[in-house]
């Protein structure tokens, strides 16, 4: 069963200056000598504070908040990349985050080889990656480029390929940072349909976006983040209303 449980999850980033990063400076500090009081403490940035979240199948959660409110950090916690520095995060189910779709791809390799590479990162076996290749070839419409190194691709073509492979696996939990739009008009429409299908079939969806229309369309719940804390949580309509009022007022 897919589920997400966060209990008082906090994410604190230590910000080291050059001295804090240095072993020599750290050793010398212990040994003695002048201590610069500014360098003494390690500054930490609280990216997320006391986040409580319970998501079960059927939940489509919208993350609302300004830039720097902690939306992306929260998505990374949900992806399992950041383990909370305090509190508990319990994520059950196969997570797919379309946060960085090109992750792991190598420009020197051909499109075909990159499908394998990206597929392996998504947890496929070599055989499974080979099996999905024809379908991806067809979907991306890359034709002869499939056998050329990816460095010869335009950025749009690279994204097409990355998108096609990344959406070839159906996750239990799907994480999205803004709605993805790929390629030119005709392809964007095709990509939207494909993405919507993956979203539809995911048991849990978490979508961060600044666009209320998009959030309303895909989500049923929402949390409002501000300065790393959940300031409001509830149904999508309530939260968007509050958020809208805040923006204006």
């Amino acid at each position: 069963m897919a589920s997400i449980t966060l209990r008082n999850a906090c994410v604190d980033f230590p910000i080291y200056n050059a001295r804090g990063r240095s072993l020599k400076a750290n050793v010398l500090r212990r040994v003695g000598g002048r201590i610069d009081s500014n360098n003494r403490e390690i500054i930490t940035v609280e990216a997320l504070r006391d986040i409580n979240l319970d998501l079960r199948p059927g939940d489509r959660l919208a993350l609302v908040g300004h830039n720097g409110a902690g939306k992306s950090t929260l998505l990374r916690v949900l992806a399992g990349a950041y383990e909370p520095s305090r509190g508990v995060a319990h994520i059950d189910g196969k997570v797919s985050s379309l946060l960085d779709m090109t992750m792991g791809m190598d420009p020197e390799l051909t499109g075909r080889e990159n499908i394998t590479l990206r597929g392996i990162f998504l947890g496929m076996t070599f055989r499974q990656a080979t099996e999905i290749t024809p379908a991806i070839e067809e979907f991306t419409e890359l034709g002869g480029f499939m056998d050329l190194p990816m460095r010869t691709y335009s950025s749009g073509m690279t994204l097409r390929l990355a998108f096609a492979v990344s959406t070839a696996v159906q996750p239990d939990i799907l994480l999205l940072d803004e709605m993805i739009s790929v390629g030119d008009m005709s392809f964007a429409e095709k990509a939207r349909i494909r993405l919507e299908q993956v979203m539809e079939n995911s048991r849990i969806l978490v979508l961060a976006s600044h666009d209320p229309m998009i959030l309303k369309r895909y989500c049923n719940k929402a949390v409002h983040l501000r300065e790393g804390q959940i300031v409001a949580a509830g149904s999508i309509d309530d939260i968007l209303e509050q958020h809208g009022a805040l923006e204006q007022g």
């Binding site: 449980t5 209990r7 409580n52 979240l53 319970d54 079960r56 508990v88 319990h90 719940k221 949390v223 804390q229 959940i230 300031v231 409001a232 949580a233 509830g234």
Partner: peptide, 19 residues
């Protein structure tokens, strides 16, 4: 304070379930 109540409303059903 308000924040706590809202957070609870999302998780009401499963609040008792600890990992």
């Amino acid at each position: 304070m308000e924040r706590m109540e809202h957070a609870a409303s999302v998780s009401a059903a499963q609040a008792a379930v600890e990992p």
